[in-house]
Amino acid sequence: MATIEHAGVSAGRQGGTPTRSEIEDFLYLEAQLLDEWKLDEWLALFAEGATYDVPTTRADDDADSADQLFLVADDYARLQHRVRRLKKPGAHSEWPRSRTAHSISNVRIVEAEGDELLIRSVFVTYRAKNDVTDCYFGHHFHRIRVQADGLRILSKRSMLDMSSLRPHGRVSIIV
């Protein structure tokens, strides 16, 4: 398993609530790992038991995957499988893999309680494959736990702010 020591906020940080720029570094690291298709390293940013979900377009921020159809609603087992699958040639949609650029901005710490933070950010993610470029945009919610050895993602929710998933047709990348 890869390490995340190159995270600016990982090893040896000095207690207390991380600053916004430390959080930004963490989100930029996540974006870079995805763009470099370092998916195991990306998964290592998540705590065990973490979740990753993407509601349908035009859903509310507090949409519930137990009573509403989502695009992605991964528990930790499905999240692990998603990564395993994306590395296989049989994941045809991402083999050969697409090129991506994950851009993160408007980062805000919206809640801080104990060792947990809720971060809201705005994203623009480009995906290019087969000479076609698609743009996903929206906002992320990262629930993050501050640990002695760095930050871990407890949940990541990506809200797509397009009016529909058109013309993309898929969220086969991690947005």
């Binding site: 349908t56 377009t57 949409a63 509403q68 159809l69 013309p167 047709g169």
Partner: peptide, 11 residues
Amino acid sequence: IVGGIQEYSVR
């Protein structure tokens, strides 16, 4: 019908 529509396209 459950809430939430998957609205997408295929080229």
